[in-house]
Every structure is written in C-alpha cells, then in structure tokens.
Design a protein around this nucleic acid. Structure first.
Lengths: 204, 204, 204, 204
DNA sequence: GATGAATGAGGATTCATTCAT
DNA sequence: GATGAATGAATCCTCATTCAT
C-alpha cells in the first residue's frame, strides 16, 4: 500500500525519522535501536529509511551531531545571558547540566561515540566538538583580559579539564542516581552546584 | 572427549571462562563478545558455559565485578605504599590512572555498565563500588584527624567528586587521545598529574 | 528539472539507457546491475527507465539482442573482406573471437541468457540468432557450389556445430585463462587458431 | 520447537542439505537459491544450515565439487567399460553427454563457476578439474602408444579442445533445444554422436 | 511524458539460549 | 556434569516496481 505523498519536505522527513529514532532510544536505549523499529515507529517502510540515511550508523551520527549543536546553542544561550565573566563561566557547566537533563538521549549518544572506539568521528562531529571548546576558551580569555581570572591559567587546558570533569560528574549523577543523593543527603543539583563552585574557586 | 580440566573446582572453571572472555574482549572489543566465541576459545561446549553462567550478561557482570576488585586492590596497594596522608591521596587518582592503562578491558566494562541504562547494577557490583569509596573516605578521615586536610571537607562528597572527575578526565584522555596531547603540547600523564595537583590544592 | 535530452526521439532515449546499462555491466558485472544504478548513471528518474523498458530483464534482453547484432555485423564485415571461400570460413570463427575480445559485456550477456534457464528467449533474440546462422550457411553453400567444400556436408548442421564448438572454445579460454596458456605453452590466439585449422580441415 | 536429534551423522546431514539445495536449483534455477528456501525445503532452521556451511556460496561450491566428482566417476566408468582405445575415447564425450542429461543442476553449477569471474575457484575445485583432464590425457597417451592415434597429436591440447568443444555442443543443445532438432530433423543424440564421430576422425 | 519518493518482500548472516543425549 | 546440535527471532540492507504529482 502506498502512503500518500505528504507535504513534508525532504528535510522535514529526515528530521521526522531522527525524531522517531530519538524517542526509541529514550524508551529502549541505544542498544535496542534498529532500523525495523524506526520503520515501525515512523510508519515508514524500511526502504524509506534508507532513502534518507545510508545506514543505521548514519542515523546515530546525525543524532549525535544534532546533540552537539543543541549543546553548543545551550552554551551560547546561557553565557550570553550574563554580563559578568565569572557568572558566564558558572553558566557553562550549568548549561551542560541542563542539557543533559533535558536531552537524556543525547547523553547516551555522546557516550556511545566517545566509548565506541570502533566508530570514527567524522568531520561534522569534530567540528561540533571544536566549536564547543571554542566558546569556553573565549569566555576564559575574556576573563583573563578583565583580570578576573588568574593570568597563569592555560585556557585550553582548563577548558578540556572543565569538559572532562563536568562530564564525569554528570555521568556519576546519572549512574549513582538515588544512591548518591541518599548517601550525601543532598539533591543532585546541590551536588552539581558544589562542583561548579569548586571550579570557580580554581579560577581566581 | 574427556576434558583434562575435570578436576578443577567449580570456582576455577568459572574463573577460566572469565579469563577467556576477558582475552576476547581485549582482542575484539566488548561488542564482538559472544558465547560461541568464548566456547571456542575455552574449548568448552556452549552448554557448559551456561552451567556456570546464567547468561552472557552474567559473564559481563562478573567481569565487571572482578574489574572493580582489581581497582580496589590497586587503591589499597598504592595508598599503603605511602606514609604521608597527602601522598596517599595523590596516589588514589594515580592508582585509578594506572588501573585504566593496565586494564583496558575493565574500562570498557565499566563504561558499558555505566552507559547501558538497561542493565541494573546488581548487589555485588554495588558492593564493589562501595568498598572503593570506603578506601578513599578512610584516607580523607585520617587526613582530617592529622589536620592536614580542611576540617570542613565532607569526605563522602569529596570522595564521590574525586571518583567522578577522575573518571571523566580518564575518559577524556581516552577519547581525545592524540588530539588532546597535540593541542596542549603535554603528554597524557602530565595532563593527568595536573588534574591530581588541582585536587590536592582543594584539600588544604 | 528539465532535461536537455527532451528533443531526443524515443529510440534515441532507449539507446541511451542501454548504453548506460552496458557501461555499468562492463564496470561492475551483470550481477551488480540495478535500475537504480542505471538511473543514476543516466541521470534519468527511475520511473523514466520504466517508460522505456518493461523491466530490468527487458533491458538485459535488449542488450543481448544488440550484442547479437554487433556479432552479425562483425561476421558480415569479416567475410566480405575475403574473396576466397575457405578464407571466408576461416574468418567466421575469427570474427567470433575478436567480437568476444572487444565486447566482454556481450559475452556476459549471452552466457546469462544461455545459462539462465528461467529466461525464455524471446522472438527478437531468436531472430538475431537466426540471421547469424544464415550468414554462415550462405558462405558454406557458396563453398559447395565452388566445389571447395565437401558435397556431403550438411551446411546447417555444420553451422550449428561451428557455433557451438567455437563458443565452447572461447568460454574455455575465458575460464581457464592463464592456466591454459601456461600448461600448453601457447598463446590464446595460437590455441584458437588451431581450433580454426581443425574446422577447415573438416570441410575439405 | 526442537527437532528430535536424528540418527543422521554430521556428514549425512551435510549431504541432506546439499540434496535439498540441488532439488531447489533444479526446480527454480540457481539464481533463485536462497538459504531460507533451503531451510524451508529441508525443514531445518536457518541457523542449522549455517552449522554445516559457512555461507550460501559455500553450498554452491560444495555442489560444484560434487558435480565434478560425479563427472569424473562417469568418465572412469565409461572408459573402463571398453577395451579398444578409440572406443574409450568415443565414450568420453558420451559420458559427458549422459552426465549432463542426468545432472542438469550440475551443468548450471559448472556454468556458474565458469561464468562468474568474481568467484575464485578454490583448490578442491581445481583438483577435480585437473583429475578430469588427466583421465582424458591418459587414454590419449595409451592410444598413441598403440599407434591408433596420430603420433603428432598434442594430448593436452586435444584434451582441452575436446572439453571446450563438447561443453559448447552440450550448451548449444540445451539452449536451442527443440529449435535445433526441428531445423536439423535430427534427434539431440544424433547431433551429439555426429560431434563425437568428428572428434574421432581427427584423431586418426 | 517525466519524476523520484515510497514500498516491502526478500536475502544473508548472527547469536543467545535450550535440551536430548 | 558435559556436550554441541538445533533453533529462529532479529538485524542490516537491497532493489524491482509502482504511482501520485
């Protein structure tokens, strides 16, 4: 049976498939993602999925790129809200935290790419990663110019360190979940904010 | 065909299977692990594997537990080498680092468990995790008693934070690899040691 | 998008599609031929291909017919070069041989048709085949009239035999390739010319 | 549902699968052969087929080897029936003919391997091919020793030529079928026997 | 006439798990 | 306890063909 040609543009259809895949990952986890499931969920034929994506991996790559773009936007949005440099820097890990909370799927995707050594990061992925680092570095440079941040700080190193540790803390929160909050008698966000204060302390 | 291994105790046989699985993961990655491959490598029948483990997942869980035990031993070993409390604490992330370098398979396993939200951490896994935290907490308490460490430090919180951030830094190193060292013009170990110094600074 | 090819006659368009298919077979083999690939190569829509051909099989059939036409022309060309009847007959298998060397695709096509019992030879194919036989028969008749060829020869039977054996020898050369030339310490063409001499011997 | 362990040995089961595949090729042609069809016909699970064969291609290769073995046995059988060398040689193409008539599938298989340049003949296949040539060469040598056959005959070349032309004639018969017999007003076997007489003539 | 998006059956292969021996 | 043959659902992907525009 033929599905009536919809008014959706090629790009919209692509996006629709990505959305379906995203919902599936959210519901069942990345490892359970399969083209057939995407096909059923989207009510498109298997072959149709392959009209828009080269392979299953291609879908995952697109979702990952999208996820990094969303993260980047979040960074820009959060930092542009604030005037003060230290506040800006505070906002960076907070942006990260909220991004993770709002996009649990994207977290899986990033982990997937960062864990699966088999998969090569393609250029689009690297590009997105690079832009994110850039935002952080620029804020740090501004801070140094304003003498708010220690002159001896290596922005790039710190930027990497910020990314790494924040990522680690978020993963910890995700994995330990209740165990963490119950043991510490803190909420997740309190624990995370302490992480942020620590970072700020190190900058002065 | 009779197996020469007949006289081995149940525990030894179990261990043998785990060793084979570990070697396979090291060689081909976790995703390529299959019972059939374990069967071939161990020269045991498929059915025999199932006498000792409930499922493939069970094998992975056991390997993960084993990995945490190894990590625990490493912690104990590294910290007991040193007299000075600050040195002890320095050794904790270093133990972590060397553990990762020496046990690339275990790293995959931990990531697997921490990434795959589908898999529930079972009690044995939680137990292993708990013991690791305990080692760290104890060292920190000792430091506080000796007034080497800030009195206001929440040992448990810091211990979690240490675990989370160190894990994140190691993952960063693994994922970014050369890109990191080339951009920073630092070796991996230099970058990691800076992370450790930062931690120590925060304790005083 | 409007095609510049609009003014082309139906026949020209058909020919163009066949040419594209032929190039694809030459490049990737008959088994890799697909309508989609033809569509891409010809820059025509998939549906357009189906306006000119009923099915993929139809395209292959047309190419096969075309191949037989080329072979027929080669026969006529080679035999008309020579005055002497025996020379003419010599040229027939030689024409065959050169045809195969120059048209490796057609060889695949003929084999395909002759091997795939599922495909029925349609009338056009039979027609082409018939004309080829006719050329041979006519030369043989001329030879008999000139008393150069044995009077008791059944031209039609011999013509079939010539076709069958020559085809077999060419296939042998193609399949055995180097193994043949190395074992015999002969070149392909020497082996083939011996085949031709044998045939001539039988005619006198 | 589990199929009761049959009394069939591993080799028998393998043979059974090959038999099923053979019947399918006979019925629907080689191009329609698929593992799923073999699975259905044999009433074995798909996975079971893969216990005995590495791939679909592996099945085809096995059938081809088997076919060449059958042909070889036919050669030996036919030639050993006769005392006289010329009779022996007569019997070689006749063995070929009867082999083809009795094993129409094998014909497809040999053509398949000889046509599909993509598939590499493995050693077992080459071995079978080689043995067949050897039988022919030996008979020819014997004939030369007995001075029944021309001393100047190159046995190996002739053996190749015999194989090539006979193969070609049999293919012709298969492809042209009725068209041939109707045009010539001969039966297939008459046409084939004329081919054999021609060959014998050339040997003296 | 021309387009190309959509279809979905079909195909090769893998693998966790079971169970008769 | 030990075996390993058997299972079959699941997975990725292809491609001839159709048909609304």
């Amino acid at each position: 049976m033929r599905r009536a040609r919809t008014e959706l543009s090629k790009e919209n259809r692509k996006q629709f498939i990505l959305d379906c895949a995203e919902k599936l990952i959210l519901k069942e986890g990345l490892s359970k993602l399969s083209i057939e499931r995407v096909s059923k969920r989207s009510k498109l034929a298997v072959g149709t999925i392959y009209l828009y994506f080269d392979s299953k991996e291609d879908i995952i790559a697109h979702l990952t790129i999208k996820s990094r773009d969303v993260l980047l936007k979040k960074f820009v949005e959060y930092t542009s809200n604030k005037e003060n440099v230290l506040e800006k820097i505070t906002e960076i890990p907070m942006a990260f935290y909220h991004f993770y909370k709002e996009n649990p799927v994207y977290n899986q995707l990033v982990s997937f790419y960062e864990t699966n050594s088999g998969l090569q990061e393609n250029n689009a992925l690297k590009e997105a990663s690079y832009k994110i680092t850039e935002v952080v570095v620029n804020v740090l440079k501004e801070g140094k110019k304003q003498k708010i941040i220690r002159a001896d700080l290596n922005e790039i190193e710190f930027s990497f360190w910020l990314w790494g540790t924040t990522n680690g803390i978020i993963q910890l929160i995700e994995v330990k979940g209740n165990a963490l909050t119950e043991t510490l008698k803190q909420t997740e966000i309190e624990f995370f904010k302490n992480h942020v204060s620590t970072i700020i302390k190190l900058l002065k």
